[in-house]
Design a protein around this nucleic acid. Sequence first.
RNA 1: GGCGAGGUGGCGGAGCGGCCGAUCGCAGCCGCCUUGAAAGCGGCCGUGGGGAAACUCACCGGGGGUUCAAAUCCCUCCCUCGCCGCCA
Length: 439
Amino acid sequence: MIDPNILRTDPDRIRESQRRRGESVEVVDLLIAADIAKRSSAQEFDDLRNQQKVLGKQMGPLQGALKKATDDATKAQAQSEVDALMEQATILADAVKAADAHADEVARTADKLWLQISNLVNLDSPVGGEADFTILDVVGEPRDFTKEGFEPKDHLDIGEHLDAIDTVRGAKVSGSRFFYLKGIGAQLEFALLNLAMQQAVSNGFIPMITPAIVLPSAMEGTGFLGQAAENVYRLEEDDVYLVGTSEVPLAAYHSDEIIDVNQLPIRYAGWSSCFRREAGSYGKDTRGIIRVHQFDKVEMFVFTTPDQAEAEHQRLLQWERDFIEALEIPYRVIDVATGDLGSSASRKFDIEAWIPTQGAYREITSTSNTNEFQARRLKIRMRDGDKTSPLATLNGTLCAMPRIIVAIFENHQQADGSVRIPKALQPFLGGKTSFTPPA
RNA sequence: GGCGAGGUGGCGGAGCGGCCGAUCGCAGCCGCCUUGAAAGCGGCCGUGGGGAAACUCACCGGGGGUUCAAAUCCCUCCCUCGCCGCCA
């Protein structure tokens, strides 16, 4: 959620953000009304409760006096005082109960509306839908296969030729959009994991292996139960969720905590399986492993101060670029448009790798600045002197396995069907320089 | 899965149903003392909401209940620890 003060002092900023996202603007007005109602009903409850407490404080001594009374006159006197007080208290108790129930209800309404407000978009983000991104940079030269004299094969052909990817058996065992990484394929993933972790650690990240199942509070807190909910697997029986990214367990790791500002930034590199329902993507990327229900990913996640968030966002982007460049993959960087940010991000940069057989750049990493949005929901604060305030969280993909493997296979394939191994990866593959089919 | 014990402020650890947002110790902060430090002494020392402020309300694992009044009694769920069973 965003700073409630903005709602009270500058609601137009929120309206503008919602408008740029293509989301409800009316909800802002509903929320303003609900916010006022919430505060006034809470005030009513406070007052009544205060009266009840004041009354309650008189009750003890009075009953004590009643007990100690020896003669009938004082006893009767005390008794009548107790009775009168009790009568008042009973009436008040009902009023308190009613006010409490009302305040609760009103607060719930307001809270629910708050969850419908997405993070404030960064005003520098391009406005529009999925196609309205701006291109920030293009790096590397796509290979000219015509000039090289052969037709590039797609990653699945290559993967099958190398006996590295098996989607047929994936589908047999688990259904469509599941796959096996086998032999070279599995080794490649381990090599990528090690390269990614080595880079992350040298950049000050703490490696983390996270749970892949989380409670609703973690999902809610990271903002994945809004529009993104349809893509989340839920285990009904236990009321838990499979994470679509380790961003969720990493963000929630410090939930309900107050972190000393001197410890920031805290950087984690999380490794976990990721699960996505891919609802509403029927027919898209049905071939190969570009869009799958389960994959592994190394994710960078940072807790920092809000004033450092934008600079950190640039650093995350740079680290993503470093990794892609180490793998010698041509790519471009895009500034994602407001309509395609997701509810948590204020700004998002995607890196898209060149995929030769598609003649297109396809998303392989994504880094988001969520400012204080997730931290507010997850109650993660920082202590600066005697002040506590929400901190900022950011996330960025370091290495999403299937898509990186796709990019490596397609971009580094050779005419003879082998795949060249980029230098940076060779130390993690026993010094091997190319992938060839198993004997 | 079964039985037992327990969940209180950064940590430890109290808390007859009203005087408890909570005694005390440690850690931390400020001051005094000291050439400096330690010790000692004095003070401060949870989080959040509302309010300009005075002040006020909420929170003692979560939720519900009893009561005029709940950290304290009842129900329920969760978690931690111990033992047993089962499985890695």
